[in-house]
Design a protein around this nucleic acid. Sequence first.
RNA 1: GCCGGCGUGGCGGAAUCGGUAGACGCACUCGACUCAAAAUCGAGCGGGAGACCGUAAGGGUUCGAGUCCCUUCGCCGGCACCA
Length: 827
Amino acid sequence: MTTNDTTPDTHAPEPRSARYNPHAFEQAWQERWEAAGLYTFDENAPGEKHYALTMFPYPSGNLHIGHWYAYCVPDARARWMRMRGHNVLFPMGFDAFGLPAENAAIKRGVDPRGWTYDNIASMTTQFRRMGTMIDWSRRFATCDPEYYRWNQWFFVQFFKRGLAYKKESFVNWDPVDQTVLANEQVVDGRGERSGALVERRLMSQWHFKITEYAEELLDFGGTDMPERVRLMQTNWIGKSVGAEIDFPTPAGTETVFSTRPDTVMGATFLVLAPEHAKVRELTTDEQRAEVEAYVEAAGRLSEIDRQAEGREKTGVFTGSFATHPVTGHQLPIWIADYVLVTYGTGSIMAVPGHDQRDFEFATKFGLEIREVVRAEGGEPFVPTTPEETLTGDGVLVNSGPLDGMRGGKGHIGPVIEKLAELGVARPRTTYRLRDWLLSRQRYWGTPIPIVYCEQHGAQPVPEDQLPIPLPSDVEFLPTGQSPLKLHPTWKNTTCPVCGGPAERDTDTMDTFVDSSWYMYRFASPRFEGGPWDPVKARELMPIDLYTGGIEHAILHLLYSRFWTKAARDMGLTDANEPFRALRNQGIILGEDNEKMSKSRGNVVDPDDLVREYGADTVRTYLMFIAPWEIGGPWSPSGINGPAKWLGRVWSLYFDEPQGPAENVTEAELRYAVHSTLKRVTGDFERLSFNTIVAALMELTNTLVKAKRAGVRGTPAWDEALRLFNLMLAPIVPHIAEEIWTQRGGEASVHVQAWPDADESALVRSTVTIAVQVSGKLRGQIEVGADATKDEIIAAARAEETVARFLDGRETVKEIYVPGRIVNIVVK
RNA sequence: GCCGGCGUGGCGGAAUCGGUAGACGCACUCGACUCAAAAUCGAGCGGGAGACCGUAAGGGUUCGAGUCCCUUCGCCGGCACCA
C-alpha cells in the first residue's frame, strides 16, 4: 500500500480494498481492550467456568508463525466459548528455563537471566499484536524464584514420599548439551534437542518414580486425547503380562521374566545382559578372559549400534549352568547384549524353538532347540530358519506336566497356575516405562534442594529455607560440568540435621518438571502459601481444552499426567487428569512443503505479515489454510483469499454496492444467515476452523448479492448484518469490534452473547430433490416441503430428462430419501 | 517387523448419519472499469466432441460408496532384539 507520488492528478492508489485498513484500528483496539480489562478473568463472574490453555512457549526471543497457529486459533475458540456464556480463562506464561539461555551465555557472554526476561518482554509485545483474549495479568515465567521455589517444594515432598530417589544406573549422556537426559528425550539414540548420539554412562542421578503410576497412566478414562497420543503413551509404557520363573544357579536363584511361560519346557539356556550383577560370579576361570572382553566391548557400543537393525547376535558362554526348575536339566548360562539390563530382570530363559531372537542365537552358537508348542493337528517340527519358529498358538508337547495344555500369548493363565503349584513361577507384569531421570548437569534450571552431609547423607532442604535461588555470579565455561559445581561458595552450606558442613546438590532439574504443573499455577499465580491455592485450583482444574504440538505426546503430557496423580495423592487436587480434552494442532510448513528453517530460507515472519495485511487477515488465513489438526504448507498467494474477504466484509457494511442487481428475498436471506449460524456453531464445537471461515465467506457472498437485491432496510437485512457481525467476532476480533462500534453497538462485540439460530428461518416452503435413475443422477425437481412420497415420485417421473431414461423400461423399485433424493431403479 | 493414520481438480481443501463429489479459497482465462496497469466488479475453471468417465489401483456389499468390507500400491507418524 504505497502512495504513488508521481501522478498527482489521479487519486492515490486505493488500498487492497476500497477502505478496509486494519492498521487504522487494530492496535488501538488491542490497547483499549487491555485498558478496559476486557479479558481479565474473574473467578466470581457468572457463567460456567471454561479453562482453555495452549502449551506455553519457550522464550526464544521471536514469535514465529507456528506460535500464531498454536495460539490464535484456540483463541478464536476461547472467544466463542465466552460468547456462549462461559467464564473463560485463557492465560499465558513462559517455559523459561532451559539450554538456549545458557548457550547464549557461553557463546556471547550474556546473562541468561537478562536474556530470558528480555525475550519474554519482546515476545509479550509480539503476542499482543495477535489480538488474543489472553489474560496477561496472570503471566509468570518458570524461572521466577516465586515459581521454581515450588518445584523445590514438590521435590522435597516427593522425596519424603519415596517418589524422588537417587540411584546409580546407566544413563543417557548427551555429549553436546553436556548433560544426562531422560529416556523420553532420546529419539533413535540421539538427544532430542541436540541431535547428538547419546553415550551410556554409569552415574548416580535423581529420579521420579513415575513407574509407580504406570498402570493408572494406561487408563485414559478421564481424559479425551487423540487416539494417536493414547497409542504413543500406551506403547511407551509398554505393559507386558507374564510370569517370573526361578532358575537355580551357582550364584543363587536367577529369576527371569517371560511373557511366554507356557514355553518354559523349551528353555535350553539362559542369557544375561552384559551389565547383569551376577555376571562376575557366574563366570568360570576358563571363561573369564573372554567374558570380560565381551562385557567391555558391549559397554563401549552406543545404544544405537547395539540395537542396529539386522545386527547378528553376539554373545559368550559364562562356563556356568542353571538348573531347569521342572526337569532339573543343566542349562548353559550365556551373556549377550541382545538382552537389556533395564528391562524385566536383565536376564531371560531362551526358548529357541519358539522365539526368533533365541533361535538366531542358538543356531549361531550350536545350542539345543526343542519343540514344545505344536500347531493344532500338526506334525513334529523343528524350525530351520528364524521365520519358521512357531510363536503363535498351539498345543504344548514334550512338556511333561504341561503336556496337552494350550500354548500361546493368550493362554498363559492356566500354565502359570500350574507352574505356581510346582513352586517355580509367579504371575508378573512388567512395564517398559522407566523412572523419570530429572537431574541435569546444567545451570539454567531449578537447583535440586538436597544437601549432602558426611554424617547424614542426602538430606532435603527444610521448606522454610526455600527457594534455593540460582546464584547469578557464575562463570559459563563449556567444561561439561555444572557452573554451580565451579562456583566457589554456593555449594557450601550446613546440614539441616546436625548443622555441620554440607554440600548442595549442584545439578538442576529437567525443565519438564516446570511444565508438569504450571497449569495449576494459573489458578492463583501469585499464591505464596503453596504451589497453588487448592480452592481456586479445584474450581479451574482440569483444563477443559488443552492444545499444543504432538511432539510432547510422551514427554510433557505423560509427565504432567503423572504429576497430577502424585499431587492428588498428596491431597493438593481432586483432579485425576490435568486436562479433560487434548487436541494437537498440525504444523505450518514452508512454501516448499518442508519444515520452516532459516537454512532453507522458507520462513514466513508473522510480523511482516501483520504489517502487510493486519492481524485479522493472518488469523483468518491460519484458520482457513487447512484443518487445524493437520496443518500444511504456507502459500504466499493463498493469504490473498482472506485479505480480499475482509475487504468485501468491510465494504458490505460501509460501501455502496457495485455490480448488477440480484434477486434475493428476505426469506432466502434469513435462511442463509441462520443456516450459516447453525453450521458455524457446530463447527466451533468440533474445532473445524477452516469450514467456519468457508461458511462465513459463503455468507458474505450471499449478503453482497442481497445488498444489491434491494432488501436493504428490511428487518431481515438489519438482523443479517447484526448476526454476521457477531459471527465474525471470535475469528476476526478487530474488524468485528470496529464494525460493531461504527454501527453504534453498545459496549464491545466481545461481550455479546452468541446468537441461537432461529429454526423457523430454516423451514423452507420448497425443497430441491435430486433424481436418480438406477443410481445415476438424471435431474432435479423442486417440490413443496410438505409433498408426499407419491407426489414427489410422480414429479420426478415427469421431469423431462428423467422421463427419457424411464421410457420403455420396467420399474423395479422406487426409493425416496426425504428431502434429499429419489432413485428410480429400472430394468 | 509390529501398531496407527492418510491418499479427492494445477494447488489448499469441502462433503458431520451410505444419498446431487469438488463447497470455500488460491492460481489461471475471459470480460467490465482504466490512456495503461493495479485494485475492484462480473463470467468461466475435473476429464471428454459426445455417450459418458472420474475421489491411489483392483475387487465386493448396496437401489445408491470419497464414506462400509477385502486385497494391493504409495506416503506419513509411532514403536522396534522389551523376552
